[in-house]
Structures are given as C-alpha cells and as structure tokens.
Design a protein around this nucleic acid. Structure first.
Lengths: 193, 193
DNA sequence: CGTTGGCTTGAGAGGGCTCAAGGCCAGTGG
DNA sequence: CCACTGGCCTTGAGCCCTCTCAAGCCAACG
C-alpha cells in the first residue's frame, strides 16, 4: 500500500529509507478514499493534512464573487496535494480541493508531521519538493507576464501532457488563466498549422 | 557588518544563533559592492551565490526576442537574491540580476553552502524562506489568472509600498505583467475615485 | 542648456472576454 | 430501445481591456 510513497521518497533523496523509517511512515499516514467531486479541503477551513495521491486526480481552486473557478493546481498520482500555506501557518485556506476522479490518498495529518520530519530521507524529499514547487510557480509567473496564451498552452502540453487527457478543456483553460472558448480557438488554430 | 544578517536569521528561526554559528557565518560570506546597473548574474551563467542585500535594490528579469525585459523579482534590503533554480541545480540561468541602486550584499558562495546548512538556525531560516517564496509565487500566479491589472496593482501597493518609491513605474509595470502606459492609466483613474 | 530617463496622453489595433446558440456524445430512465 | 438530459466542446458577434506606436512634457544632471 505504501510502496508508491516509499519509491517517491527514494527517488527524491540520497538518504535511503530504513525499515524503521518505513514503519514510522506506516504509523504516520492514513489511507483514504474520495469519490469524484468530494472535497479534500474547503475554503475557510484549515488544511490539516498533506495528501499523497496513490490513484486519481484532484483540482485546487478558488471561487470568485461571480462564481468563477480559478484553478491553482491540478494533481495526479505521485503528487502531494494540500494547501501548504494553510497547513504550515495554520490559517484558513482560500482554496478548495476536490477529487476530479475517484481518488485514493495517503493522508499525512499535521499532528503526525513531527514523526516524519525526523526521518532524514523524508526531510530531504520535503526540501526537494519545496524547491520544485517554488521553481515551478516562478516559471508559471514568468509565463503569465511574458507569454501569450498560445505559448503557455504549448508549454503546458509539453510539460504535462497527461493533464489534457485527464481533465476537460475548461479546467485546463482555467489553469492557464483563459476562458474555455479561447482555449478552444487556440487549439483549432494550432491544428491548421 | 553581519548584524543585519544575524537579525534576519534570528527573527526567522526559533533556534538562536550561537557565537560559534556567527563565526562560521563570518567565514562563509563575502562582502561585496555593486554599482547601479552592474550585474550580479547574467543569463546563461550558472548562479554561484545567494546574496543577502545589506543596502540597495536589485531586479531579476528575462529579456525576450524583441528585447523586452520581464521583471521576475524586485529585491531590497534584507532580502536574499539569486536564481535558486540555477544555484541548487547548477544549470545555466535564464535570468539577469542587476543592481538598480548602488548595492551592498553579503555573498554566500555555493562552495560554502555546507558550512551554513550545518547551522540549525540557518537551516530553519532557509526552510522558512523557501516556504514563503513558494507561497508568494503561488499568490502571484493566482492574481495573474484571476485578477485584472488594476487589482494586482492595488495588491502590490498594499503588500510592498516601498517598491513604488524605489523603482520607476515602468519597472513595476513589467513586474505586474503590463506596459508602463497601462499602469500610468490605471493610476490616473485610481486618483479620480 | 542640451541630453537622458521617466511619466503621461492619444489613436488605432488586437487579443481575449462575454453572451448566446448549436452540436456531440454518454449515461439514464422510461 | 429510444428520448432526454447534462457535460463538454465549438463557433460567432460585439465589446473591452491592454498593447503598440507616437508625441510631448518635465526634472535631473553633466
């Protein structure tokens, strides 16, 4: 059950996981299932866990005054999902996270965080993904201030082609910060070329 | 000389700095001056140091095919500046960093990184700012996909009012992802209200 | 006192948005 | 088995925000 997590950690840290580490992880995480459309987190709540996706797909988004959803993140297998700001600073989240497909996760409750941060390989992994996160976010910022919608779409296509398979177009459009109509037109123009 | 750095670390970690820690930092960092417009990093180079700004202001930006600058980050006193991706992964940077004012920094060369990561308070600070970085980047992404230019400008004004004092308008405009003309019009409309 | 850098203003163009309608499945219930 | 529905994608028309290009103003500075 935890093997995908063990693998994930191993590939992201030079320190190997000992059997004791694995046992500690076993005790720290909780297996959990979500049906499609079920919420992992609702805005206003404090995010009490980080979730490692074993199977399925989730979206993280805000809803503005006019009811429009703005997709902050899309996540699939072998991703950690949760609102890091809310989790670490214990402030109410501005995000909703829900399952887009039936999803299975390993939940790491904050109350168990100290168990796992004591594991060197886990700490190393965490530093790693923190870094990747902020680098990825920077790239997205750079794209949004310097590139037109079409280029951003192409970049997403080459970075995360799975997204186009697993999520409908209007979700991807929102992730890119454009409307579904615009994305549709971009795609039809791209085909002509 | 290093006092601002010591203070910075102290306010961002629960572990206090010992005298030995301070001595270690003393050995790890190098004081350096940059004149206005001088480069701390040029794109294509590998970023070999992180720089703690004691005095002055810097910009981090890319230049596109048409010669337009796109400002990724603006930094002033008590900020760490450098391209984290290039620094940690040792890949050529896509950014330029230059001094917008005459600037003094404490340079932390990568070859000395292991000295300081051994300092608990420093490691804690680093985790902290990594987190802040990725949270801030996320907010900027959210703004760019969900808010019009005017709102983003107002947010910047309330978050970092110093920026408007220290950097000319066309730099701030680029940071916001709009042209200087648009920012000028936004401001003049805001005054009318 | 000319030059340079920064800010503003205007006119026209364009990319993306909104609103609206229509088409295409896949699932569901009669 | 078929009609209906809901989710998704497309297309069109008009509009608005922002960009581009261009001109002019002002303050700082050598």
């Amino acid at each position: 059950m935890l093997d995908p997590l063990f693998n994930y950690i191993s590939t992201r840290s030079r320190t190997p996981l000992t059997d004791a580490d694995k046992a500690a992880l076993q005790n720290a995480v909780v297996f959990k299932r979500y049906k499609k459309k079920q919420f992992l987190l609702q805005d206003g709540d404090i995010c009490k866990s980080l979730n490692f996706i074993l199977k399925g797909a989730t979206r993280q988004y805000t809803v503005d005054e006019r009811g429009n959803e703005h997709i902050m993140a899309l996540s699939i297998e072998n991703w950690w999902v949760g609102d890091r700001e809310s989790y670490f600073r214990e402030v109410p989240s501005v995000y909703n996270i829900d399952a887009w497909e039936d999803t299975e996760v390993l939940m790491l409750p904050k109350v168990h965080l100290n168990i796992v941060t004591a594991i060197p390989a886990f700490a190393e992994m965490r530093m790693n993904i923190d870094q990747n996160h902020s680098i990825a976010a920077q790239k997205r910022v750079l794209g949004s201030i310097s590139q037109p919608a079409e280029k951003r779409y192409e970049d997403l296509l080459s970075s995360y082609p799975e997204f186009m398979q697993r999520f409908p177009q209007h979700i991807v459009a929102s992730y890119l910060g454009i409307t579904k109509e615009t994305l549709s037109r971009i795609k039809s123009q791209a085909v002509k070329k």
